[in-house]
């Protein structure tokens, strides 16, 4: 399936043009996208560090997950919305960018990692809630989450550079 015609149409819509050609709107959306990183990744990192057994030791895992994840999810929604607006402002270039493509795959993998965690080892969290060092499957989930999200941030930043683009934009 070739999505390029669709992205070309999308890029020509009034909203896309308006963001792309704006003086303040584009920087404002991009800044929102970067700063929600603290809300989303900052809090996810707290949970991951707790799962790995190096941060917030002594705080029950269920408390960290239960009380911080709602905030992190709020951050994710803001991040996804601002990210979609950024994509909308230049879909042709973004979709052809290798870093963007890798980033989307990595985000998919973080989702799979999170689902695996929540539907397997986290189901039995009561057994290891207060362990300073959680079971290896929880540690592995925390480690994978941290590594994958770091790669997402790195790819997101690198997306601004057009080193590997076929058409330089």
């Amino acid at each position: 399936m070739n999505l390029l015609p669709f992205f070309e149409w999308l890029e020509g819509t009034a909203g896309s043009v308006a963001i792309r050609e704006s003086t303040l709107l584009y920087p404002f959306i991009e800044t929102s996208h970067v700063l929600t990183l603290c809300l989303f990744l900052g809090l996810i990192a707290m949970l991951d560090l707790r799962l790995i057994g190096v941060g917030l030791r002594g705080v029950p895992v269920s408390e960290v997950a239960g009380r911080l994840l709602p905030w992190a999810l709020g951050g994710f929604v803001l991040m996804a919305m601002s990210g979609m607006l950024l994509f909308y402002s230049g879909p042709v270039r973004a979709s052809g960018n290798i870093f963007f493509r890798v980033k989307m795959v990595m985000i998919g993998l973080t989702g799979i990692n999170a689902l695996l965690f929540h539907f397997t080892i986290y189901k039995r969290v009561a057994d290891w809630d207060r362990d300073a060092t959680p079971p290896w499957r929880a540690r592995a989930a925390g480690f994978c989450s941290l590594v994958l999200w770091c790669l997402v941030v790195i790819c997101g930043r690198m997306q601004a550079y057009n080193w590997f683009d076929k058409v330089k934009g």
């Binding site: 970067v34 603290c38 809300l39 990744l41 900052g42 990192a45 905030w71 941030v153 790195i154 930043r157």
Partner: peptide, 17 residues
């Protein structure tokens, strides 16, 4: 820049908590 962003995320998380 990537290091700066990742440091920012962690700093933000610790401050926010």
């Amino acid at each position: 820049q990537c290091g700066h962003l990742l440091g920012l995320a962690l700093l933000g998380g610790t401050v926010l908590v």
